[in-house]
Amino acid sequence: MTETGTTEGTGGPVWVGLPGGLLTLRRLLLVIWTVALGAATGVLLGVLAGPVWAAAGAFWLAVLGWGWVVLARNWRSWRYAERADDLLISRGVIWREQTVVPYGRMQLVEVTSGPLERRFGLASVQLHTAAAATDARIPGLVPAEAERLRDRLTALGQARSAGL
């Protein structure tokens, strides 16, 4: 493997992974929700069923540990590659999914960033095509990369327009 991510001599696509900010954001949300649910479960069961049942709130600690690992595996599975005629997006741990979006079929490329994404310095690129089934999204990019990708995809889409 070379530093760019391709295998020597194969000329395969150069895959780009997502930055770590998305994983940090998702893990923070996981911690907030599991702690809140654990506290609520413990308090409610403690009041309604007795103090021994309050320990059932610890179930959410197991969910936190499991979710921590799953989020990391999911984050590592997301990647994209720009080829000459199309954009590849790959994701999934158990069910792998690879989307191929031809540049000539793109109708709209938008960059979005919600309040939490902005706080963590992230943005998402949403690709719209004529067929809704081929719409694609790349979450958790650095805003500068999202804007660069939007501008590049828009230019390539116009240059390779398929008469839509």
Rank of each mutant, 00 (worst) to 15 (best):
G92P: 00
T2F: 06
T34E: 00
T2K: 03
A123S: 13
L44K: 04
A132D: 10
A49M: 09
G57N: 05
V70D: 15
G104R: 14
S161I: 01
T99W: 09
G50C: 08
T129K: 05
V35T: 09
L116W: 15
F59V: 15
A40G: 14
L127E: 01
D85Q: 14
A58H: 02
R137C: 11
G11Y: 04
P102K: 08
A132L: 12
A39P: 05
I138W: 07
A72G: 14
L44D: 00
G67L: 05
A159K: 05
P51L: 13
G57T: 03
A132H: 13
G50Y: 11
T129L: 09
L127Y: 09
L18T: 06
S90Q: 13
L48A: 13
A56C: 06
N74K: 05
A58I: 04
W53N: 00
V63P: 10
I94G: 02
P19A: 06
A159M: 03
A40P: 11
R73S: 14
L122E: 00
W66T: 07
V125Q: 09
V52C: 00
G46A: 10
V14Q: 12
L28R: 11
G104E: 05
L127A: 08
R105D: 11
T134E: 03
P13N: 03
V35I: 12
A56G: 10
A62I: 12
E117R: 13
P51F: 13
G163P: 00
R27I: 11
V14Y: 06
G9H: 08
F120H: 05
V16C: 10
G114D: 08
A58S: 09
I138R: 02
V111E: 00
R26Y: 00
I32D: 02
T2I: 04
V93Y: 01
A54G: 04
A39Y: 07
A144T: 08
L71E: 15
T6I: 03
S90I: 00
G57S: 02
G9R: 10
E3T: 11
W68E: 02
A136H: 11
R137F: 12
W75F: 05
R27V: 09
A136W: 14
V35D: 05
V52T: 12
A81W: 07
R137I: 14
V14T: 10
V16Y: 09
G57K: 09
S113W: 08
S113P: 11
E145D: 15
L71S: 02
Q158H: 13
M106S: 09
L149Q: 09
I94H: 04
V69W: 15
A81Y: 06
L45M: 14
D151F: 11
A49V: 09
T129F: 12
S161Q: 05
P143I: 02
L28K: 06
P102S: 07
G114C: 02
G11S: 02
L28F: 14
W75D: 00
S161F: 07
L141T: 04
L30A: 10
R160M: 03
R79W: 00
E110M: 03
A146Q: 07
S113K: 07
D86M: 04
D151I: 01
L153Q: 08
L45T: 13
